[in-house]
Structure formats: structure tokens, C-alpha cells
């Protein structure tokens, strides 16, 4: 087990370190400038994809809960706490 974890760590480092260096060196070419508009809006769109995916799951969950567990649902049955009337 330890060997596998250790091997995994070494492998991860071997991948991570060069890419960090690569990232650090970006944007240094003279005469060619980064397009900040593109970078910022690109980040915005990536975050929106995440936000809307999670938002669909959460709001879908809320709608399903509301429809499934409403009192008037044909499948609704009393909760186990209702017998004592104490919750």
C-alpha cells in the first residue's frame, strides 16, 4: 500500500513540477501581449459552466423534494414522528 501511495506521489510530482514551471514562464514573449479580456471572460465562462451545472442539480433536487414529499402527493405517508406528535 505504502509503495503504491509513494509511487503515486512521485508520479504526481513529476507531472506537477514541469507544468508549474511552464505556467510560471508564460506571458514573457516580447511583442506579444496577453489578451486580458479573453482570459477573464474565459475564466468567467468556465465558472459559469460549473455554477449552472451545480445549480441545475440543486434546483432540480429542490423541485423534486417539493413535488415528492408534499402532503397532497398520492405516495405521501405519515412520518414516523407523527404518531407521538413530537418533532
Amino acid at each position: 500500500m505504502k509503495v503504491i501511495i509513494g509511487f503515486g506521489l512521485v508520479l504526481a510530482l513529476l507531472i506537477v513540477l514541469p507544468s508549474v514551471q511552464n505556467v510560471m514562464a508564460a506571458g514573457d514573449t516580447p511583442g506579444e501581449y496577453l489578451d486580458r479580456k479573453e482570459l477573464i471572460w474565459g475564466l468567467f465562462y468556465r465558472l459559469m459552466i460549473v455554477a449552472f451545472t451545480v445549480g441545475t442539480v440543486v434546483s432540480g433536487m429542490i423541485v423534486w423534494l417539493v413535488l415528492r414529499f408534499r402532503e397532497s402527493n398520492p405516495k405521501a405517508k405519515p412520518t414516523s414522528y407523527e404518531a407521538e406528535g413530537n418533532w
Binding site: 429542490i62 414529499f69 408534499r70 402532503e71 405521501a76 405517508k77 407523527e82
Partner: peptide, 16 residues
């Protein structure tokens, strides 16, 4: 908190 709210509704008999 959101999890707690949704999990509380789960399995209830909700009077809206």
C-alpha cells in the same frame, strides 16, 4: 445548511 434543509424535507410529509 442547504444540505441540512433539503435532508430535512426528504422523507417528510410537507404541508405547504
Amino acid at each position: 445548511h442547504v444540505f441540512n434543509f433539503l435532508a430535512t424535507m426528504w422523507g417528510g410529509r410537507i404541508k405547504f
